[in-house]
């Protein structure tokens, strides 16, 4: 079964053409251009290079977050637009689940960290076991402040392997907190890749067996919603007094 995957949840545009879980062609762009400018030309070049046609596709997988809000929407709108015209099923996966594949088979706990701005990370924790076909999720995806995340990991006795676009930048901070219990993978291994998404999409497809409706997974509410809820709580609090 031939499929395409799209990941635009970080500054990297990552796409892959794959067949039955095996990557056939991969596109990776980490340049100053925007996803909007890069993604269709990249797709077009990849199809040409792989000598594939759009009509051969049977599935489209897309990373639906967490990550950049705008990036999430560009990826989903692109995947949906293609699927709508080509009448193909969609499969949606999470960015952190995809990144867990970068630490395949390692003994350490795998902790993907994505830059969530405001001194926070989108993060989760996974563990590979000998018999598992995928990583077990030990902590569900969430947005955590960097200090809080490192505090929590300090409590654990395991060694931790950090992956993701925030890893390189935070290397010193991580090592200061966790010492030699931390391994920080370099960018070329730990940035989002089409290959990782292709693995996770294939796993997801075995699980769902049919197309699914794909919606963004932001984790966070918009600032306006948060502020409004705060004001509402304050207003109700005043009324009680």
């Amino acid at each position: 079964m031939k499929y395409l995957t799209i990941d635009t949840t970080t500054k990297v545009s990552a796409i892959a053409l794959a067949e039955d879980g095996k990557v056939v062609a991969e596109g990776f762009l980490h340049t100053s251009k925007t996803h909007s400018e890069r993604i269709i030309p990249m797709l077009d070049q990849l199809f040409a290079a792989a000598a594939w046609t759009l009509s051969q596709l049977e599935l489209i997988g897309v990373v639906r977050g967490p990550g950049s809000f705008t990036g999430i929407r560009i990826g989903i709108a692109t995947a949906q637009g293609l699927a709508q015209v080509l009448k193909l099923p969609l499969a949606g996966i999470l960015s952190l689940d995809a990144l867990a594949w970068a630490g395949w088979g390692r003994d350490e706990d795998i902790v993907p960290i994505l830059d969530a701005r405001k001194n926070e990370w989108y993060t989760a924790r996974y563990r590979w076991t000998a018999e598992s076909a995928s990583a077990e999720c030990l902590m569900a995806p969430q947005a955590l402040s960097i200090s809080e995340c490192l505090e929590q990991l300090k409590e654990l006795k395991q060694r931790i392997c950090f992956i993701g676009d925030a890893a390189g930048k935070a290397k010193q901070e991580i090592e200061a907190a966790l010492g030699d219990r931390a391994i920080v993978l370099p960018d070329y291994l730990s940035l989002p890749r089409g290959a990782y998404a292709a693995q996770e999409v294939w796993r997801r497809w075995q699980e769902i067996g049919a197309g699914e409706k794909v919606e963004p997974f932001y984790i966070r509410f918009s600032e306006a919603e948060v502020n409004w809820a705060k004001k509402e709580r304050a207003r109700k609090g005043e009324n009680h007094e």
């Binding site: 909007s36 269709i40 797709l43 077009d44 709108a77 692109t78 949906q80 637009g81 015209v85």
Partner: peptide, 8 residues
Amino acid sequence: SGAKAMAY
């Protein structure tokens, strides 16, 4: 993004 993907 949606229009571009559809047209392509």
